[in-house]
Design a protein around this nucleic acid. Structure first.
Length: 280
DNA sequence: TCCTTATGTACAA
DNA sequence: TGTACCTAAGGAC
C-alpha cells in the first residue's frame, strides 16, 4: 500500500488514536524490544510524515527522557514494499509473532508488521532525513521549484526522476505511471526536456491526486468522464482498489484510445504507459 | 502447499 | 546492475 498518501494518512490516524495519551509500547516480534521498553508508558505527542517516511513523536515523560533533550524521541518508520499497519479498538487481541511494534491505550491499538525501518532516533537524526528528501506535494512547506531545478538539469528519464525521493518525496510506482499518463508524457522523456509549464501542471496534479488519496486511503486517478459508470465499462477487479489508467493494465486497452497498454522493466520496477497517448 | 508478486530502499561490486 | 530484506495474498498445483 505504501506511497506518500498512505503515510500521511497513517500520521493522521496515529494522531487521532493516540496523541496526548500515555501509550503501552511493545515489540512482540522482538526486533524493536529494547526501544519499545524505553518508550513504554510515555505520551505520544505528534506524528509527522515526509514522503514515505513516518515519524511518531514521544514526549519527554518517563524513560524516553534520555532521548528527549529537545523534547522529542522519534520512532522512524518506513514501510518499504511489504510493511503494513492495522488499527483496531481496545482491547487488543494477542499479537501475532510478526508484530514489530504495537501501541495500545484504553481505546485503541495499532500493529506494525514488516517495515523496512522501525528505529528510535533523535531530533537531529530526524532532521537529517528531512534534509535528504525532496519536496513532498502533501507538505505545506514544499517547494516545487526545488524539484524542477534537478529535473531540468538531468538527462535521466522523467520516470526515474519521479521515483527518486531526493527529487520529489512520496511518489511511488502508481502515481508515477498515472500522472505521466494524465499529462500525455512518455516515461522515457529526459527530465531536461520537460517544460516548466509541464512540471507545474504535474506538481499541481500530484498535489490534488495525493490529497484525495489521503482522504480516501486509496489511489484513484481516472477523471470523471473515464470512470466505469461514465464509460459503461466494467469496474476494476484487483486487490488494489482504485480506478487507474495504466498501472498494472499491461496489454489491456487504453481507456482513451484503445491501444494496448505497454509495460517494461525500469530500474527493477514495472513501468506502464500508453504508447499512443504519451509523447516524447 | 508451494510459488509468485508487490504501491520500496540500501548497499555491494 | 544485482541482491538482500521484510510479510501476506492470490493463484497454481
Amino acid at each position: 500500500m505504501p506511497e506518500g498518501h498512505t503515510i500521511h494518512r497513517l500520521a493522521q490516524d496515529y494522531t487521532a488514536a493516540f496523541a496526548r495519551t500515555a501509550v503501552r509500547v511493545t515489540s512482540p516480534q522482538g526486533k524493536f524490544a529494547d526501544s519499545a521498553a524505553l518508550l513504554d508508558g510515555t505520551v505520544l505527542t505528534t506524528a509527522d510524515a515526509h514522503g514515505k517516511h513516518l515519524f511518531l513523536g514521544f514526549g519527554a515523560a518517563g524513560n524516553a527522557a534520555e532521548y528527549a533533550a529537545e523534547d522529542a524521541a522519534w520512532v522512524h518508520i518506513h514501510l518499504g514494499l511489504f510493511g503494513k499497519v492495522a488499527f483496531g479498538p481496545a482491547p487488543a487481541p494477542p499479537p501475532t509473532d510478526t508484530v514489530r511494534l504495537r501501541l495500545a491505550n484504553d481505546t485503541s491499538y495499532v500493529d506494525l508488521r514488516g517495515p523496512t525501518t522501525c528505529a528510535l532516533i533523535t531530533d537531529p537524526e530526524k532532521q537529517a532525513i528531512h534534509d535528504r528528501l525532496g519536496p513532498d506535494p502533501l507538505r505545506p512547506d514544499a517547494d516545487p521549484a526545488a524539484a524542477h531545478r534537478r529535473i531540468s538539469r538531468s538527462r535521466t528519464t522523467i520516470a526515474a526522476l519521479l521515483m527518486d525521493q531526493k527529487v520529489i518525496a512520496g511518489v511511488g510506482n502508481v502515481y508515477r505511471a498515472e500522472v505521466l499518463f494524465r499529462h500525455g508524457i512518455d516515461p522515457y522523456r529526459p527530465g531536461k526536456d520537460l517544460t516548466p509549464a509541464e512540471w507545474d501542471t504535474i506538481w499541481q496534479d500530484l498535489t490534488a491526486l495525493m490529497r484525495e488519496g489521503v482522504r480516501n486511503n486509496r489511489i484513484d486517478t481516472v477523471r470523471p468522464e473515464h470512470t466505469p459508470e461514465a464509460m459503461g465499462r466494467p469496474p476494476r477487479v484487483d486487490d488494489h482498489g482504485g480506478e487507474v489508467y495504466v498501472y498494472r493494465r499491461a496489454n489491456q486497452p487504453c481507456h482513451l484510445c484503445g491501444s494496448p497498454i505497454s509495460t517494461a522493466d525500469l530500474a527493477a520496477r514495472n513501468l506502464f504507459w500508453c504508447p499512443t497517448c504519451q509523447k516524447r
